[in-house]
């Protein structure tokens, strides 16, 4: 378990000693493993948050399997695939930016993060068109069309909107985090000696990506 490793491979011992635990509270000791532990714990809560929705999906999928597979065909696989690829590439970009920081190339790190941000934005644009198209067709909760639809179809699209909307909010939070990290890199608050913020932002971004990896097959690929 990561949490019990007393020192990580790049703990900056000098920083630890210089601002040891008995100096002012404001200069808290700098413990990378601890910060990372906190982030991992936070990611567990995110998984539980989405977990609740996946439980609903599982229950309703079992009750209305035929409706769900039918409604799944209405979603645009191409758009979904493009979005999936974009998120995967952006995750790679974030991981690459960490390597870049470790190798002291600030500009490359910033470029990779900028690219990830761009992909995140493109994901949202894509999502906007997807949603817009569905709403144009009259597919949204409480619409006249949905009132005549089968129960399973109504629930499928309610879940689709709820889960993708919550995921989109997470994309926005993740993009904010990445942007803040970029600002920190520019002002030299994140450097090759101290980049736990970048790592944590990266972890968050990977989680958002990972959740999409589950959303994509559950909605787009069921037949």
């Amino acid at each position: 378990m990561i949490v019990n490793q007393s020192d990580s491979n790049y703990t900056d011992d000098k920083t630890c000693d210089a601002v040891g635990s008995h100096t002012d509270n404001e200069n808290k000791h700098y413990d990378i493993v601890g910060s990372r532990t906190g982030m991992w714990l936070f990611l567990y809560t995110e998984i539980m948050l989405f977990g609740g929705l996946f439980v609903l999906y599982a229950a309703y999928y079992r009750m209305y399997t035929a409706d769900f597979t039918g409604a799944g065909k209405e979603l645009d696989i191409l758009m979904g695939s493009i979005n999936t690829v974009m998120l995967l590439v952006s995750s790679f970009a974030v991981a690459a930016s960490i390597t870049a920081i470790q190798k002291k190339s600030r500009k490359v790190a910033l470029a990779f993060l900028g690219f990830a941000l761009f992909l995140g934005a493109m994901f949202l644009v894509n999502k906007y068109f997807e949603w817009g198209h569905k709403i144009d067709l009259g597919i949204f909760p409480n619409s006249p069309l949905m009132e005549d639809s089968s129960h399973g179809r109504v629930l499928f699209f309610s879940l689709y909107y709820t889960i993708t909307a919550l995921h989109a909010i997470h994309i926005i939070i993740g993009m904010t985090l990445l942007a803040v990290t970029m600002a920190f890199i520019m002002t030299d608050k994140v450097t090759e000696h101290k980049y736990v913020l970048l790592e944590n932002a990266g972890l968050y971004w990977h989680l958002v990506d990972l959740i999409w990896i589950f959303i994509f097959p559950l909605f787009y690929l069921i037949y």
Partner: peptide, 17 residues
């Protein structure tokens, strides 16, 4: 707000969930 129906039996939802 939206009447998403996830817990509404008239739309197929299950209040027990």
């Amino acid at each position: 707000i939206f009447g998403s129906g996830l817990f509404d039996p008239s739309k197929g939802g299950d209040p027990i969930l």
